[in-house]
Nucleic acid binder design. Structure first.
Lengths: 343, 343
DNA sequence: GAGGTACGGGAAATCGATTTCCCACCTTCC
DNA sequence: GGAAGGTGGGAAATCGATTTCCCGTACCTC
């Protein structure tokens, strides 16, 4: 391995000078600087980040923990966060919690052991994640993203799910649906809890009647199971409000296979607006989460000073309902214009 | 920060002894060992991986570079690799190349600077990725996964695309399709080149006739564009062979919107078998890549000794055609059995 | 010309864990 | 009883980059 000493020797200067040239931490004779840069180039020297990090007590690295790398909503978040941080020269270390609080805790430890400068976390479980995250918050600057774990002393950037679910329900009610079913994940994380609560509130506010809600997980498979039960149960609701898009995709698939007319017989809404939401037949009406805004706000907080005197802050972004054919047959076909514009 | 010295002091021993207790590198008086462990627990000590890595010249960390985190096929690979490596106590540092060779090169450097013990790479471009990967291979044990870059001296674990495409074409021909179109990505990476080559070979071998192939990128959007051109071109082929599932999803969406009967008028095949391939209507016939086998083989190579005397090795896995409704209306409905088994 | 102040270079201390290297003590065996 | 061998603990060197501290030179100022 070629070290800074080698470069120093080749350039005929001390290691201190090499360090100063490369980091720009102090003025250096231009003639010496040129020799150093030439030597670096010649030897192909690159600074060892372990040594540098150890000495500086900073690594220009932040950790990010997400519940599930395979969920397109989280990959979108990862990509958005990664782009922003790369721009300011910070590397992201990614950990997949595999939807398991234990794996999450273990991943957090592995990140902390690497002396990261900050941590972005999407907690797996509102309660089971608390201990590990609280510990993490004591060691590094932590920002919670998308979800919160109970009692963790860290800022939060999230979405106003009350408004999100409400916009979906209002839309359905306006289209004449009064008998709604809610299919979502068990309220183990804050988003699932808030969306369930929001659905109940919306029912009360609009006077629509709700089927018994079905709670499973944020997966396609659960959407399939729940929809199968509804189909086999006989009397279908007029609309199915899904806790996220993956569930909605499963629901749509089962309804399609069963020959149910969507949205004629049953309307369906999702939540997130992942890329695949435009690909179903019919395309999925969904509540679009502002991924870029979330990423931007979270990164800004992370690079900032952290919670002030008056405790952690909470930022909520309002999501936007995207109406497509799964609730409205007259909705424009997705991307049609763009495709037609090509020669 | 609590250091090993603090633990040593609290336990009334030297730092050397603490290190020996924690790493098990030498026998230590059980009584002292107990004191050390108690002190560690008391102080919440965790070893600093920067310092440890610097001294040991090993980090128990490997890097992984993928072209695009958001592509479900790559997230599946990442998950499979991550699970395997976690089992042997190795951490994966992930880099998203954003389908850009420059971003890829930069990401590779950032990984190398961190003193990783090994590197798994899915090269973005068969030629443009060569320089950076060759340099990386000189510094660290490199294994290429899924794709290869020209001339890089590193082992490769990949899929036999000749067989994969051939199985799809044979299936279509057997079902009576003789007029085929191939929609894939520009052959800038080895998989795209091999699949294109395989399609031509299969045409010759089966005597089917091919439309001019359409090359774009491995994205839904390109699938939409290509399908739109075919639809607007008038005479549709009897089957469309897609270079990957994302393209196929775009193609299916456009055909669906245009009211084309699949597979009656046009049959469609994909490649990869991502999770969403079962969700389209009709479900997508596709060539399933053996993600777990690939991950296993790549990890084994990475943990092994590297290329021997006789140059880099190449392992090819044979993929499997999964027949679904997009080519065969009688194909079983996906997951139906599983769903029905539930109460 | 004496004294003061920048400026810029290098030697050495430092970050925290690991690993020599050395030494004291204890067995064991002739 | 003494030599040989083994065990286990600690002091100090080490990994590679950064930074403090010190010193010599140059430039001012009065």
């Amino acid at each position: 391995m070629v070290t800074m000493r080698d470069v120093a020797q080749a350039a005929g200067v001390s290691a201190a000078t090499v360090s100063r040239v490369l980091s720009g931490s102090r003025r250096v004779n231009p003639e010496l600087a040129a020799r150093v840069l030439a030597a670096q180039d010649e030897l192909g020297y690159r600074t060892n980040l372990l040594a540098s990090g150890l000495r500086r007590q900073r690594t220009d690295t932040v950790g990010m923990v997400v519940p599930q790398v395979g969920n397109p909503y989280f990959s979108a978040l990862m990509e958005a966060v990664g782009r922003r941080l790369q721009r300011v020269g910070i590397t992201v270390l990614l950990v997949d919690a595999e939807n398991d609080p234990d794996a999450e805790a273990e991943g957090l430890h592995r990140l902390l052991d690497r002396s990261i400068d900050g941590l972005l976390a999407v907690p797996v479980d509102e309660h089971a994640s608390t201990a590990a995250l609280t510990e993490a918050a004591e060691r590094v600057h932590l920002v919670q993203l998308d979800r919160a774990a109970e009692g963790v002393p860290a800022d939060l950037v999230a979405v106003d799910h009350l408004a999100g679910i409400r916009s979906a329900v209002d839309h359905l009610v306006a289209r004449g649906c009064s008998d709604l079913a809610f299919v979502s994940a068990e309220p183990r994380d804050s988003t699932a809890r808030e969306r369930a609560r929001a659905f109940d509130d919306a029912m009360r506010a609009t006077g629509a009647t709700a089927r018994a809600s079905a709670f499973g997980s944020y997966t396609v498979e659960w959407g399939r199971v729940a929809a199968t039960r509804l189909v086999e149960g006989g009397r279908l609701p007029q609309a199915i409000v899904c806790g996220n898009d993956l569930i909605a995709l499963g629901v749509l698939a089962v309804l399609g296979e069963a020959g149910v007319d969507v949205p004629g017989e049953v309307a369906v809404t999702g939540y997130d607006d992942i890329g695949f939401a435009t690909l179903t037949a019919p395309a999925l009406t969904t509540v679009r989460q502002p991924v870029d805004s979330l990423a931007e706000a979270a990164v800004d907080l992370l690079l900032g000073d952290g919670p002030g005197e008056d405790g952690p802050s909470v930022q909520r972004f309002v999501p936007k309902l995207i109406v497509r054919a799964s609730t409205d047959p007259s909705a424009p076909v997705p991307h049609r214009r763009r495709v037609q514009e090509r020669p």
